[in-house]
Design a protein around this nucleic acid. Structure first.
Length: 559
DNA sequence: AACTAGGGAAAACCATTCGT
DNA sequence: ACGAATGGTTTTCCCTAGTT
């Protein structure tokens, strides 16, 4: 053994690894340090449910050095050494990462019939670990999760020189990308089917009725039902909903709309969603009783009921919406708030009581994530497949919504139909100039107050993506050139954007043009076949300037 | 009965990096 | 320079085993 080298301690509270280097320059843990006095690591309060982790089972085995280094590293994380990571994340490192990693190291040491040193943590071992994870019987995404909970610990050890770290080459300590396309493999929750959604809303409507009674009992269960209604109609995440504040409803510049303001944990800003207020908003709201049919008034009702409890609530719960007196025998009558678990229980009772089942007859799985997706799909339908609006309503960037929330929904596309008018130009020549305005798409009967127009002072409709389904849209034989120019631009757009998104947002457009407008025009004799072909060729060769890439960079500006 | 603690697994989110 | 993929952190889900 070489000369003992002890690093200068800058802070006695920061855990150090007592080690030296041998002749070959490898790190050697001093035997007297193992096992440490305390094999238990305490995480302190954190967002996970775990509070501690015990390394004891890996001491006294053939991987002492690795165990010791890992424990010290975890303690350093908790002491805030290697950048600030959350307590729950460190808990994850232990419970998901190191537990499996150290188990594997033990297996490997046994297989080799010798002790493993820190220098043995190399690419070969990492590859073996990945194989070990694959043999665990968890999904690819789960393997990734376990691996990603291990890597930061090993990486930190490598940066501090305790294990060899190679960044490049075939022997790079960590494989470049062990789980390719892992983000495609996540299955995620699925939205409720229409039948499931209807059954669920019927049950919910029934269950929530008591809340409108004069002496409504403020039980946790009833509040959960109200919360589920809010979740179904707003698509919020669980935690923000549970932590909803009494000041969550804010006036919205638009009449009959109220903002619901919630704190979104991971988004670093509060997320807003518009709720309809007033009485004429039943379209979006199908799960509240018809007496007072909207979410905003339901929330107000809950707040009115829980108002008296607010004064009694513990300080950290003051100002919350979901307050109730617990029926827990050990603290009967105390004011508390809904938790994720009370939510789960009441939800399961609802499913059991109303016999809600999925298509296979199993109990219907209801959780906030599914409701969130259900909401996403519905908004997608209601906003005419406009992804940007959906994303804004969900409070995410479009990319996130694209990937995670919107499964391909045939219905959303099938709902598209040609709504405009194929004008028999010959008959209308006289009036067409007076009643129809030229647009880049053809003609419009009302660009200011039309179906998809912004309806703001002085604003003209630019929503050309919706022309084909707008009842104010009109097309004559003369407009075919513009129409086909648009048609080819849409086709060209396919190579410029995500294929799935193109399929979802634009694929119907060429179909509408071919199957409805052209076919209908030909059938009625409004268009002549030669004129159609001529316009098509002209547009292909020399598209109308408005629809060239040079002028309009992306079609999304009209979405 | 009504909760809570603990845990394992996996998904969601979002900033960064990659590849063209 | 751009969208797509990845990496890394945090949250959710759901179950069992307590506790009062």
């Amino acid at each position: 053994m070489g000369k003992r080298k002890v690093f200068t301690k800058t802070d006695l509270s920061v855990p150090q690894v007592e080690h030296s280097h041998d002749m070959a320059g490898n790190v050697v843990i001093l035997p007297e340090a193992i096992p440490p006095n305390n094999t238990m690591v305490k995480f302190g309060r954190n967002a996970s449910n775990s509070r501690s982790f015990d390394f004891a089972r890996w001491y006294g085995t053939s991987i002492n050095a690795i165990t010791y280094a890992c424990q010290r590293q975890i303690e350093r994380f908790l002491a805030g050494q290697e950048g600030a990571v959350m307590g729950s994340t460190v808990a994850n490192y232990c419970l998901n990462g190191l537990r499996n990693f150290l188990d594997y190291c033990m297996l490997r040491a046994t297989a080799f019939g010798r002790d493993l040193a820190l220098a043995d943590v190399n690419r070969d071992l990492i590859d073996g670990y990945l194989g070990h994870l694959a043999g665990l019987g968890v999904a690819t995404i789960g393997q990734k999760s376990l691996y990603m909970s291990t890597k930061p610990v090993l990486l930190a050890l490598g940066r501090r020189g305790l294990i060899p770290l190679l960044a490049y080459g075939d022997a790079a300590t960590f494989p470049h990308n062990p789980f390719p396309h892992s983000n495609r493999k996540t299955k995620g929750e699925t939205a409720l089917s229409k039948r499931e959604r209807q059954a669920f809303t019927v049950a919910l409507r029934q269950a929530i009725k008591p809340i409108w009674a004069d002496n409504a009992p403020v039980t946790g269960e009833l509040l959960v039902f109200a919360l589920l209604v809010v979740a179904l109609h707003t698509g919020r995440n669980t935690t923000p909903l549970l932590e909803m504040g009494r000041d969550c409803l804010r006036p919205h510049p638009k009449e009959n709309i109220v903002f619901m303001v919630l704190w979104k944990r991971r988004g670093y800003n509060s997320s807003k969603v518009a709720l309809r207020a007033g009485s004429d908003a039943e379209r979006l709201l199908e799960s509240t009783p018809s007496v007072r049919t909207n979410v905003a008034s339901l929330i107000r009702r809950v707040m009115a009921l829980t108002e008296p409890l607010d004064a009694e609530a513990p300080d950290d719960l003051k100002g919350r919406v979901w307050l109730y007196r617990t029926r827990d025998p050990k603290s009967v009558g105390q004011v508390t708030t809904l938790s994720a678990q009370t939510l789960a229980q009441a939800r399961n009772r609802l499913v059991a009581e109303y016999g809600l089942t999925d298509s296979d007859g199993r109990p219907l799985r209801i959780n906030i994530s599914r409701l969130r997706k259900t909401f996403a799909n519905r908004i997608f339908e209601l906003t005419d497949g406009d992804l940007a609006t959906t994303a804004a309503a969900l409070g995410n960037t479009p990319q996130v919504t694209d990937q995670n929330y919107l499964g391909p929904d045939e219905n959303a596309r099938r709902n598209w139909q040609f709504m405009g008018v194929v004008l028999v130009q010959e008959l209308l020549t006289r009036t067409i100039g007076a009643t129809y305005r030229d647009t880049p798409m053809g003609r419009c009967a009302d660009p200011v107050n039309g179906q998809y127009a912004p309806k703001r002072e002085g604003a003209t409709c630019m929503n050309f993506m919706n022309c084909l389904r707008c009842k104010h849209y009109a097309v004559t034989a003369e407009d075919l050139y513009k129409l086909f120019s648009f048609y080819f631009r849409v086709l060209a757009e396919r190579s410029r954007m995500d294929k799935r998104r193109w399929a979802r947002e634009y694929a119907h457009i060429p179909r509408l043009v071919d199957h409805y407008i052209v076919a209908e025009g030909l059938r009625r004799g409004t268009f002549k076949a030669e004129a159609v072909e001529a316009a098509r060729e002209r547009a292909r060769a020399l598209p109308h300037p408005f629809w060239t890439v040079e002028l309009i960079n992306t079609l999304e500006v009209f979405a």
